[in-house]
Amino acid sequence: MSGPVLVADDIGHRFGAHTVLAGVRFSLDAASFCAILGPNGRGKSTLLKILAGVLAPAHGRVRCMQRIGWVPQAVQPSLPLSVIEMVLLGRAGQLPMFGAPSRDDARAAHAALARVEAGALAGRLFDSLSGGERQLVLMARALVGGARVLLLDEPAAALDWHNQAVILRLLSDLTREGLTIVMTTHAPQHALDFASHVLLMPQGAPPVFGPPDDVMTDAALSDLYRVPVRRVAQPGLPRGFTVVPMLAHPAHPHPSP
């Protein structure tokens, strides 16, 4: 399928008088991997919710040509769900209001779990899983609904390196299968190693969208995180380099308001 699958059209949002987003514009084709970078409180999660259709933007609109699956950062079920039930819930959108999942739905749920290599977790209580396992289950839930666009809110945030690797490599595999991935992250390295597109959301300046090579300059990242950021060459990495924050360095020359 050619052409964009996810288009954000001048999206803006505010909570009361406080403007959280302004002027977000981008267009993603199929099989893209977009990382949204920015420090806390800059509206990353809000933007993701708007893209997922969970929140209505104050300004602008989202156009999505395929089914969206949303993977939240954390889910707090108030009842003791089993893992397979959590995945099954991904089919809720396809069922009528009074409907209940069928055997086909159950088979699809098991298949989705298997796709994320978490088939062994099926009978476990969702609450008993580790952070990484929960992310896998939530991804399976998004996939079982037939989503071709996955929106993930900080999927690697609380995970150790091994689990980060598992999740990100899985997302990469999915893009090779033609899915579109949009995820927010704190770690620029995730974007450098995996993303085909990056959306930077700096404070007090319009968002910047484009391939990582173009967008993720030292200056742009330093501005974004308000800490000096420098490239460090490292052969073996997908782009041959990574970026490090100079946390111990004295004050940034361009202090932000």
């Binding site: 939240p72 819930l89 609904g145």
Partner: peptide, 12 residues
């Protein structure tokens, strides 16, 4: 029971 946002995102 998962919460309004989550349920809405699932299409319920």
């Amino acid at each position: 029971s998962l919460g309004d946002e989550d349920a809405r995102s699932l299409g319920v």
